[in-house]
């Protein structure tokens, strides 16, 4: 039902201009996201350099298996997202819906595992400002956990936003409003989702492994 003419907004000269604009818009938005996470990650890295031993020891309290599992889950969701873009391009509605649902499912699994980890840290009195109790690592461990919660919660927030956008995409796809003429929404959401994946690719070794 969506033709090239219907997908074209009034102020663009042609559909190519519109698609270029949408893609470029998302890339530039991701540029701001790089600086946003860059600020947080830089904060963490500087503190890690200032307090290497405490941060290393505190990092070992995180669950490496769960972190690895989440990395795998998120990489897989990136794959399914890329496959939904392919399905959108070729106009295969059922496959598009399927891959989008799979991506959302994997995103939810990631958040679920994250919630388990957070709960474990809560149970171990490791949440700053709420129940943090210093042990033999001293007060600086609290700094590590402050950074950890700030970074992972920001990342989780971005995932939730991505899931919400994908919910809209599923709705649009279900109504048949996405297709070979109108695949840009899927494509830019894909860019965003892959970026969120890249952030985690850096957070995982920084927080869990080093």
């Amino acid at each position: 039902m969506s033709s090239s003419a219907g997908a074209l907004a009034h102020h663009f000269a042609n559909i190519h201009q519109q698609r270029t604009a949408a893609r470029l818009g998302m890339w530039i938005f991701l540029l701001t996201e790089v600086m946003f996470f860059g600020g947080a990650i830089a904060t963490y890295c500087i503190y890690r350099t200032l307090h290497p031993y405490v941060f290393e020891a505190a990092g070992r309290e995180l669950s490496k298996p769960l972190g690895t599992l989440n990395t795998v889950v998120l990489i897989t969701s990136s794959l399914t997202m890329a496959l939904s873009v392919v399905a959108a391009h070729s106009g295969n509605r059922r496959r598009l819906l399927g891959w989008l649902a799979a991506t959302m499912g994997l995103g939810l699994v990631f958040l679920g595992v994250k919630a388990i980890e957070w709960y474990t840290e809560y149970a171990h009195h490791r949440v700053p400002g709420l129940n943090f109790t210093p042990d033999e690592l001293g007060p600086t461990a609290e700094l590590f956990f402050a950074c950890y919660f700030a970074l992972t919660s920001l990342h989780a927030l971005h995932m939730i936003i991505g899931l919400a956008v994908m919910g809209v995409l599923v709705r649009l796809a279900y109504q048949g409003r996405l297709g070979p003429e109108r695949f840009i929404p899927v494509e830019v959401t894909g860019l965003y989702w892959h970026f969120v994946d890249i952030v985690w690719i850096f957070l995982f070794p920084l927080l869990y492994l080093l």
């Binding site: 990136s78 794959l79 997202m81 890329a82 894909g190 860019l191 892959h194 970026f195 994946d197 890249i198 690719i201 850096f202 995982f204 070794p205 920084l206 492994l209 080093l210």
Partner: peptide, 22 residues
């Protein structure tokens, strides 16, 4: 060498996502 190795692998992974998925 822990840190350089981990960061290098992360950069390679990020590049793969960037170049091919994105």
């Amino acid at each position: 060498w822990h840190i350089p190795v981990a960061i290098s692998i992360a950069v390679i992974k990020a590049l793969l996502v960037l170049l091919f998925f994105m």
